[in-house]
């Protein structure tokens, strides 16, 4: 039975092997190069801290056009390979047997349907597991330079492409692939559903589900001219950041109508605005002396309210989300057993 499953799917396994090799061929040299460049920059800056770029390394390293392309390719590879395994190993696994009528051949040999299915699913899930581990090992290792530089690994887009997540995705989308393919007995329908679920998961988890694994830390601080002057610890995943008044009412920006009376005089000379959850600014103040718009607003009781998940929760979040996907995988596998064993050929 093992020989047979290998023989049936070896072409797909080999193609994915080639894709992984190509991915590694991009990752390994660029990863080594990035780490070396970063270490050199650190050494240089340790010797002569006066060099302007040293104060802000993340804005000066790996910013060329080629670096951008490399980052995008690694990102796409880490995101893409798991879903590709789901689409092209998972979806046809059982569906193709139905399509070609070979279910009737396979299920009338002397191997029980349960055993046949167990061997097939073990191969597919085992392959997905190993493949996910290979992808995430490469991607996580590659990212350690950028993680050290930017501390962005907790935010959306980075969280999904490191640690446990690529493994969880590869296994989960493979399971979704064979479950949908089996349910509808059509590879193409399996493909479409798997891709649809992939899009839904990627869009919904970071937005609506992941923020709630643990209750966020809330921090209230005075408004400052620069959004980066904040007490939020480095590496945190910032969920929201708003200007709030004494009653707790939030402002995304101030207009002449919402600006408190005593601060109205600043409305002409400054912009008060907030852009995105990561940054908040009420300045820049054009005045060099005396009170500024920030001081005025702080005195009026306005505050910068931030909610975030601190960096030390990163692995807890990885474990929780991987656990959720693993649970969903178990449900999908159960459904596939039900479809194959309880339905007629």
């Amino acid at each position: 039975m093992n020989w047979f499953v290998w023989r049936q799917h070896r072409k797909q396994f080999l193609i994915f092997g080639v894709l992984l090799a190509a991915f590694a061929a991009l990752i390994i040299p660029t990863g080594v190069h990035y780490w070396d460049t970063y270490q050199q920059a650190l050494a240089t800056c340790a010797q002569s801290p006066a060099i302007p770029s040293c104060s802000n390394l993340q804005d000066n390293l790996f910013t060329s056009h080629t670096d951008g392309l490399i980052r995008i390719t690694v990102f796409l590879g880490t995101f893409g390979l798991p879903i590709l395994v789901g689409l092209f190993i998972g979806s046809p696994l059982i569906a193709r047997e139905y399509e070609e009528g070979t279910d009737k051949l396979a299920w009338t040999q002397s191997v029980s349907r349960r055993k046949w299915l167990t061997v097939k699913l073990t191969w597919a899930l085992g392959f997905a597991l190993l493949y996910g581990i290979a992808v995430t090992s490469l991607a996580t290792w590659w990212s350690h330079t950028l993680d050290a530089l930017t501390q962005f690994r907790f935010i959306q887009g980075h969280f999904e492409t490191q640690g446990l997540m690529p493994v969880a995705y590869t296994v989960f989308f493979t399971a979704i692939g064979f479950t949908a393919g089996t349910w509808f007995r059509k590879t193409l329908v399996g493909l479409a559903i798997t891709f649809g679920i992939f899009v839904v998961c990627m869009a919904s988890f970071a937005q609506w589900i992941r923020p709630h694994y643990m209750s966020p830390v809330t921090i209230t601080s005075p408004l400052t001219p620069k959004a980066s002057d904040t007490k939020i610890p480095e590496g945190a995943w910032i969920l929201s950041r708003n200007i709030v008044d004494k009653e707790g009412k939030t402002f995304s920006s101030f207009s002449p109508g919402t600006m408190p009376a005593q601060c109205q005089k600043f409305i002409q000379e400054t912009q008060v605005m907030r852009s995105g959850p990561d940054s908040i600014s009420v300045g820049p103040s054009t005045k060099t002396t005396g009170d500024s718009v920030e001081d005025c607003l702080n005195q009026a009781g306005y505050r910068d309210l931030a909610k975030y998940q601190p960096a030390y929760r990163y692995w807890d979040f990885q474990r929780i989300e991987a656990g959720i996907y693993l649970g969903l995988t178990a449900l999908a596998v159960g459904a596939t057993y039900w479809f194959v064993l309880k339905r007629d050929a």
């Binding site: 009528g101 070979t102 009737k104 299920w107 009338t108 002397s110 029980s112 349960r114």
Partner: peptide, 18 residues
């Protein structure tokens, strides 16, 4: 769907799947 039963029965489906 059991080995004992299946090993005694040969079947050739209409579309001759291979």
């Amino acid at each position: 769907q059991h080995e004992d039963f299946l090993s005694d029965v040969g079947y050739l489906a209409q579309e001759i799947p291979l």
